[in-house]
Lab assay of single mutants.
Amino acid sequence: MDEEYDVIVLGTGLTECILSGIMSVNGKKVLHMDRNPYYGGESSSITPLEELYKRFQLLEGPPESMGRGRDWNVDLIPKFLMANGQLVKMLLYTEVTRYLDFKVVEGSFVYKGGKIYKVPSTETEALASNLMGMFEKRRFRKFLVFVANFDENDPKTFEGVDPQTTSMRDVYRKFDLGQDVIDFTGHALALYRTDDYLDQPCLETVNRIKLYSESLARYGKSPYLYPLYGLGELPQGFARLSAIYGGTYMLNKPVDDIIMENGKVVGVKSEGEVARCKQLICDPSYIPDRVRKAGQVIRIICILSHPIKNTNDANSCQIIIPQNQVNRKSDIYVCMISYAHNVAAQGKYIAIASTTVETTDPEKEVEPALELLEPIDQKFVAISDLYEPIDDGCESQVFCSCSYDATTHFETTCNDIKDIYKRMAGTAFDFENMKRKQNDVFGEAEQ
């Protein structure tokens, strides 16, 4: 370990593993360490099931009705991949897709007046949907046509809207959309967690709705994908990429100290040895004095023996409960997957309800979601602090990732990755940087 590296990475969460992969592909010498004996950090999948019970201090362990412990891979952080989103792009560019198998999530649902409705995925579904009345549908269709044709580089498509100054509230007004449709559009399509976006320039919202539609167009059922064997497969896929390009991995490796000289990182000390480096990437748990708390998320993992009611017996789905429907500031989400994804025993389902904490009784906040899941065989409640770095790391060369937020997709995580890359490399992130180099010394032969 007593060696000189360009970059040392602490923690094998998804953000850290993707950055480690990119740095290795770009010719950097990388050492990647984790104090845990497993990959994934906060974003790991726990197996066998006995391990999950232990982690949540349920000492009696799983009953026999849960089947074989080894058949379970339970995500600690519930997220899906947008089919046309940035993480899929990263997987394709790096060819990490060859280590993973994905399934399309069967449906996306939205909560309205105590019931759940399928988010329409085709024009026919939209016309048949009970989510809105006849005239509302016509106006909504006009709005969707506007979004589909919108091109930020072609003012002819703006229809009198200025993407940089017109607020989204004004765009909704222009198409005369009612409150329910606005809730549905902002939260189930643009996937905002709160209503803060309404008074911001509309460009980002329009682009988010386009991303949803384009992702949906790829597979038809929903815009989301999920990897077989759980999300823990993602960091491992990128760790393989890093290793192929010469990255060194050490799990179960305690970090005793991060060594600084004149305010700059110069190395990491572990078990009496020092590895030197020019730059350091880590998750917040490794540098508690360089991060601040930015809120909390509650996630309740529920094991069920039945599909969720009114989802047409889907073996995977997402449910969004827009905040307006339950008098909150932030949406509540449910991600459900099952034995069909090799993450649970035969006939079992895993539904994870999550939201940003707003009160001193977080469990009560998630109740509307839990009511949709009854009866629940077993619950595991996790309340996590969200951390963000206190500075950009440019001076110390210590670059810290943000905690995983309450969103049900990876777009915010990818933004964090691109942002850290830019601060480390001094140049904007470009997907081309992730391409495997042809015929290089570490390149794998085609399968």
Rank of each mutant, 00 (worst) to 15 (best):
residue 114 G to F: 06
residue 237 G to Y: 04
residue 228 L to R: 04
residue 16 E to F: 02
residue 287 I to N: 13
residue 138 R to T: 04
residue 396 S to N: 10
residue 144 L to F: 12
residue 317 C to Q: 05
residue 138 R to L: 10
residue 377 D to Y: 03
residue 16 E to M: 04
residue 37 P to S: 08
residue 353 A to G: 10
residue 100 L to K: 15
residue 419 D to R: 09
residue 206 V to L: 10
residue 404 Y to R: 10
residue 214 E to Y: 09
residue 108 S to N: 09
residue 266 V to F: 14
residue 177 L to Q: 06
residue 345 A to G: 14
residue 174 K to I: 14
residue 416 D to Y: 03
residue 394 C to S: 11
residue 446 E to K: 09
residue 411 E to Q: 13
residue 117 Y to F: 13
residue 101 D to E: 04
residue 396 S to R: 05
residue 65 S to L: 11
residue 117 Y to M: 13
residue 271 E to Y: 14
residue 255 V to G: 04
residue 203 L to Y: 15
residue 284 P to V: 15
residue 271 E to K: 09
residue 392 D to S: 02
residue 436 R to F: 15
residue 328 R to S: 06
residue 433 N to P: 11
residue 189 L to R: 04
residue 99 Y to C: 05
residue 32 H to E: 14
residue 142 K to I: 04
residue 50 E to V: 13
residue 209 I to S: 01
residue 234 L to I: 12
residue 24 S to D: 10
residue 337 I to R: 12
residue 264 K to G: 15
residue 378 Q to K: 00
residue 105 V to Y: 01
residue 173 R to Q: 10
residue 369 A to Q: 01
residue 264 K to N: 07
residue 409 H to D: 13
residue 230 G to W: 14
residue 278 K to R: 12
residue 142 K to H: 08
residue 20 S to P: 01
residue 269 K to Y: 05
residue 4 E to V: 11
residue 231 L to P: 01
residue 101 D to S: 07
residue 117 Y to T: 01
residue 397 Q to Y: 15
residue 176 D to Y: 05
residue 45 S to V: 03
residue 26 N to R: 03
residue 242 S to I: 01
residue 354 S to V: 11
residue 162 D to A: 14
residue 32 H to M: 03
residue 146 F to L: 04
residue 173 R to G: 03
residue 316 S to G: 01
residue 350 I to V: 12
residue 418 K to W: 01
residue 316 S to D: 14
residue 373 L to K: 14
residue 223 P to R: 00
residue 316 S to C: 12
residue 252 N to L: 10
residue 441 V to I: 08
residue 227 P to V: 05
residue 421 Y to P: 02
residue 70 R to P: 12
residue 227 P to T: 00
residue 284 P to F: 02
residue 196 D to S: 15
residue 379 K to Q: 13
residue 400 C to F: 08
residue 52 L to M: 00
residue 134 M to T: 07
residue 10 L to P: 02
residue 436 R to G: 03
residue 104 V to E: 08
residue 181 V to E: 14
residue 299 R to Q: 13
residue 162 D to S: 14
residue 76 L to V: 12
residue 220 G to A: 06
residue 279 Q to H: 05
residue 309 K to D: 13
residue 383 I to L: 08
residue 128 A to K: 04
residue 412 T to P: 13
residue 420 I to M: 13
residue 321 I to R: 02
residue 221 K to M: 14
residue 166 T to P: 14
residue 183 D to G: 05
residue 444 E to N: 00
residue 130 N to Y: 10
residue 312 N to L: 14
residue 20 S to R: 00
residue 385 D to Y: 04
residue 341 H to T: 07
residue 146 F to I: 10
residue 146 F to R: 06
residue 431 F to E: 09
residue 127 L to S: 05
residue 19 L to F: 14
